[in-house]
Structures are given as C-alpha cells and as structure tokens.
Lab assay of single mutants.
Amino acid sequence: PQECLLLEPGLNEIMANSLDYNERLWAWESWRSEVGKQLRPLYEEYVVLKNEMARANHYEDYGDYWRGDYEVNGVDGYDYSRGQLIEDVEHTFEEIKPLYEHLHAYVRAKLMNAYPSYISPIGCLPAHLLGDMWGRFWTNLYSLTVPFGQKPNIDVTDAMVDQAWDAQRIFKEAEKFFVSVGLPNMTQGFWENSMLTDPGNVQKAVCHPTAWDLGKGDFRILMCTKVTMDDFLTAHHEMGHIQYDMAYAAQPFLLRNGANEGFHEAVGEIMSLSAATPKHLKSIGLLSPDFQEDNETEINFLLKQALTIVGTLPFTYMLEKWRWMVFKGEIPKDQWMKKWWEMKREIVGVVEPVPHDETYCDPASLFHVSNDYSFIRYYTRTLYQFQFQEALCQAAKHEGPLHKCDISNSTEAGQKLFNMLRLGKSEPWTLALENVVGAKNMNVRPLLNYFEPLFTWLKDQNKNSFVGWSTDWSPYADQSIKVRISLKSALGDKAYEWNDNEMYLFRSSVAY
C-alpha cells in the first residue's frame, strides 16, 4: 500500500478484514516500526519515573501501586492483599488454560486453511493473523472459523447495514437495554456533547472508545462508531461505564469510582452478554423472526463469544505479567523485547512474524500501555462479568443454560445491579461482590459453565490435532529472506536491522 494510513481508520481495517498475509505483515510491522521505536526511549523513562512515584508513596514499584486498587484492609472477613491478586490471577488462569488451548488448536487448523504454508500444525499462531493489530481480540476471525457456515449468520453486521443503522441508532438501542432493566436514560448533555462518529477531516481524533465523567452531571462517550456488531456491543460496554458513573455520582468525590477497576469494566460487559444472544437480537429485529436455535447455532454463537472473551485472556494476563516484571526490575532493559516474545510464545501461543530487536517497544504500540492504563482490569472484569451475569440471571428468573440468558426487561436484575453500582468505592469490593453474587472472591466457574458446550465440542473437533504449541517454530524461518527484502523496500531505514548471520545468508542466496 502506498497511501498514508492512520491506525483508525486504515490500518485497523486491514487487520480486521485482509486475507493477504503480506499486506497484514506490512501493516503490523509498519505500526510497530513507526510507533514502537519512537516510544522506546520514552517508555524507558516512564518506567523509571513511575517507579519513583510509587516508591515515594510506600509501594514496592509501580506494578505494586496498580495492584493496590484491589487492596482491602481493616474490614474483618473482607480483607484482600496485593499479593493475593497475583495468586488469584495465576490460579484462575491455570483453570482457563485447557479451554484456551483447545480454542487455540481449532483456530490454528482454520488458519492453516486460510494461509497454507504459513502455519505450523504444532506451532504458535503468527501475531499478525489474529483479527486486530495486537491479536487482543480474535472476533474478526469468526468468518474464517465459523463451525456451521450453512446456518444463518449470528454476526448481524450485514443486517445492521441493510437496515441503515447508524451510530445514533446503535447508542439508542444500548440505552433502551439499560432503561429496560430500570436504569436511567442518558442525559441530554450526553447526546449533545458526545463524539460518536469519526469527525473525519474536520479534526484529528483519538478513536479508541472511551467513556468520560467530567463532573457536575456531564457524561460523554468518545467513539468513532462503525456499523458493525462489534461496535454495537462496544456501545453497551461504554454506556455501562456511564451508568456506573451516574449511579455513584451522589457519593463524596473520592468515592466516585468503581469498587475496583475490574468492576467498572465488567458492568457494560454484562449487558453485552445479553445483547449478543440470538434471543435479544431477534427481539430488536437484527435476526429474522423465523431464526431457529439448535445445537449448531448454539456452537456458532459460543465460538463467536469465545473468540472475543476466551481468546483475549492469555493476551491480557501475559501483557500485565510482563509489565509487573519490568517494574519490579526482573527483566533487564536490554532484554525487554526478547522476554516479551518469549512470554508471548510460552503463555499465549503466539509468535512474532519477524524478529524484533531491542530498538522496538511492541507493548507500547497498544493504546492502554502508552496511555498508562493498568491492564489486569480486563482479566478480572471477565471473571466478574460471568459471576455477575449468573447472579443477575437468577434474579431475572432465567431457566436454562447461562449462555442463553438475556436480562433485558428484568427490573429485578437491574435493581440488584444498581444497588452495587451506587456504592461506588464506599464499600470494599469484596463486600460489594458478595452482595451481588454471594461470594467475595473472583471465581472462574461461571465462565467455564457458560462455555461448557463449546469446550465439549472443541475436544471432539481436536481429537486428531495437536493441542498446545511448540515454541520453537517461527513463521519467518522458511520465508525470512523474502520477508526481509520486502520489508526493507517498504520501510527503508526503519526496517529491522539484519545481523551478520542474516546478511551472510542473504549474500549466499543471491550468489547461489
């Protein structure tokens, strides 16, 4: 590609939709070469300064400071330590791993069909083939991996386009969902002041979706909304933040926050679980009234959910574990990228498509890292959202599997949720969690119950496949010279610098 592309739109479109291996590689590498390399010296300084700040406030390091958001002291029976968070994340991840490994094996087999000769049947997945710029969410792999393609499509993007949905309609439908469970409408100022579409040439905007509580009843969302099912669900997520903000607005200023950061992320995700169900999509006209649910549509639905929800958990866990180790000084600065990709291979089963030396800073190419967000919130929120969903479905008197529950129109479920939201940070999160779900610790069981039918199906699908991955295989081993030459021509001086062995191999191949 010759034109100058922004991340959004532009590069993200390539990473969402392109099936051209080399075009995807160009976009993936260009973003890291342009952005990651510029941020490397800044990120090194950032780590030093943030650690100084944390230690001045009596924390061991900046990662310890972040984990302090979960700490509860002096509340008998509800205490929770920063170290306990690490333990809980690690042991819940071990419980999730078998499901993830089977999802990984299934996706690898489907990617082998889409990119023959580029995928190893026992290796890691190349990082640039996973549906977005970071491989964070695998949602866009659904069209390549759908188990029963002859069934009606449960990705309702086409239906939204056919019905001329726009950003306003998407957010109005999200608002209807919250109102149906007894939560309030958005304010008039929300509709007047939010930026729900890309302003285009009028001004440059950071398009990463964010929710804003500017105080004095001024709530806004910034999002360059596209007419897709993914953005339909994202709208519910962002509006969930606003509902939380509005619910605790009466609290004293210092207590106007989520019980912990994971709670804030979980609220909209609960609504997304219901909004994505075929039952709900039928009720708002995005699935045909004669759409029939059966075992095959159930597996299609659960796989689509797993690509988004299960596929991202190792990504989140590994990223934050790397940062915690960096802040603690356990990874020397001259080994940041080496350790990043070692951990990516070992924990996530994902491999870099071309080698990256220590001039890169791949983590900082992600919005949340370069903008100083702690990231473990996206792991804890996933466990909380299924715990909350299970409890709210019980309040809504849902009968049947958890993945079929739609809590819309249940004011009982809405009241149970609101009673927790309005507390803000005035009560320990362990107590707030217990008030809703009857337990005071994160628990992976509801998530595993939700995906149980899919897990059973995946194990059957993978019975003749290798489950797990070898960390030795690299996608650039066989194609390295071709890849390096093409990237050198595209990126010039910003391309990865060849070492002596690679230059010798190149000259030998040319001479041959």
Rank of each mutant, 00 (worst) to 15 (best):
136 R>Q: 09
136 R>P: 03
136 R>F: 06
137 F>L: 12
137 F>P: 11
137 F>D: 10
137 F>R: 11
139 T>N: 10
139 T>A: 10
139 T>G: 11
140 N>Q: 10
140 N>Y: 12
140 N>A: 11
140 N>R: 13
153 N>G: 11
153 N>K: 12
153 N>M: 10
187 T>E: 15
187 T>K: 01
187 T>W: 02
187 T>L: 03
188 Q>Y: 13
188 Q>D: 05
188 Q>I: 10
189 G>I: 01
192 E>C: 07
192 E>W: 04
193 N>E: 05
193 N>Y: 15
193 N>S: 05
193 N>K: 04
193 N>F: 15
206 V>N: 08
206 V>M: 07
206 V>K: 06
206 V>F: 05
208 H>N: 08
208 H>Q: 11
208 H>R: 08
208 H>F: 10
208 H>A: 09
210 T>H: 02
210 T>S: 09
212 W>N: 01
212 W>I: 02
213 D>C: 05
214 L>F: 15
215 G>L: 04
215 G>W: 03
215 G>I: 01
215 G>N: 14
215 G>K: 15
216 K>C: 01
216 K>Y: 02
216 K>H: 00
217 G>T: 01
217 G>L: 01
217 G>E: 01
218 D>M: 01
218 D>E: 02
218 D>N: 04
218 D>Y: 01
219 F>P: 00
219 F>N: 05
219 F>D: 02
219 F>V: 04
219 F>Y: 06
220 R>P: 00
220 R>H: 02
229 M>R: 09
229 M>W: 11
229 M>F: 10
230 D>Q: 10
230 D>Y: 09
230 D>G: 11
233 L>T: 05
233 L>A: 05
233 L>F: 11
233 L>G: 06
234 T>I: 13
237 H>F: 05
241 H>I: 08
241 H>L: 14
241 H>M: 09
246 M>E: 11
246 M>G: 03
246 M>A: 05
249 A>Q: 02
249 A>D: 08
249 A>G: 06
249 A>W: 02
250 A>N: 13
250 A>K: 04
250 A>G: 12
251 Q>P: 00
251 Q>G: 04
251 Q>N: 07
251 Q>H: 11
252 P>Q: 06
253 F>G: 01
253 F>K: 04
253 F>H: 01
253 F>R: 03
253 F>L: 05
253 F>S: 04
256 R>N: 05
256 R>T: 08
256 R>A: 14
256 R>I: 02
257 N>D: 12
261 E>R: 10
264 H>G: 12
265 E>F: 12
265 E>S: 10
265 E>W: 09
269 E>D: 10
269 E>T: 11
269 E>V: 08
269 E>A: 14
272 S>T: 12
272 S>L: 10
272 S>R: 11
301 F>G: 09
301 F>W: 12
301 F>C: 09
304 K>Q: 13
305 Q>I: 02
305 Q>A: 07
308 T>L: 08
308 T>R: 12
308 T>S: 10
308 T>Q: 13
309 I>Q: 13
368 H>D: 09
368 H>I: 08
368 H>E: 11
372 D>G: 12
372 D>F: 01
372 D>T: 06
372 D>A: 06
372 D>V: 03
372 D>E: 09
373 Y>N: 11
373 Y>L: 13
373 Y>D: 10
374 S>C: 08
374 S>N: 13
374 S>D: 14
375 F>I: 10
375 F>T: 11
377 R>H: 10
377 R>I: 06
377 R>Y: 06
377 R>A: 10
378 Y>F: 12
